[in-house]
């Protein structure tokens, strides 16, 4: 059975959740992602660094009034990586379903 091209970075469920959340947005505030994923500031910051290193997530910092804000957005390569990863996951599920139906067809009837 051929192994589909899974993205090792997106095999982590937390990172996959962050990327999936960001995929529906043009940009999102750090605290919005933190609240939805249910991570602490430091844990999310660590995951964002992991995703920013290969260029999947872009980070912009700024101020609104006197309050500092951090905005995140999924880059084109991040979108591409998610699409490829989802396609690979679909392939695994489909291969398993095909193998299951072939196995059932080969079983002798009782």
């Amino acid at each position: 059975m051929a192994t589909p091209d899974l993205d090792p970075l997106l095999l982590d469920p937390t990172r996959l959740s962050i990327v999936a959340l960001l995929a529906s947005t043009e940009w999102a505030e750090f605290r919005w992602v933190r609240d939805l994923v249910g991570l602490s500031d430091s844990a999310l910051s660590k995951q964002i660094t992991n995703l920013a290193n290969p260029g999947y997530v872009e980070v912009k910092k700024g101020y609104v009034g006197k309050r500092p804000r951090t905005w995140l957005n999924l880059s084109d390569s991040g979108h591409q990586a998610l699409r490829a990863h989802v396609a690979a996951l679909n392939q695994i599920v489909e291969q398993s379903q095909r193998a299951g139906s072939t196995h059932r067809a080969e079983e002798p009837s009782a």
């Binding site: 192994t3 899974l6 999936a20 996951l89 599920v93 398993s96």
Partner: peptide, 19 residues
């Protein structure tokens, strides 16, 4: 590294849920 079909299906459901 090589998820099972169940793990892959769970990951796909999670992607949809997060979106």
């Amino acid at each position: 590294e090589h998820p099972s079909a169940e793990e892959a299906a769970r990951a796909l459901r999670d992607v949809d849920r997060r979106r």
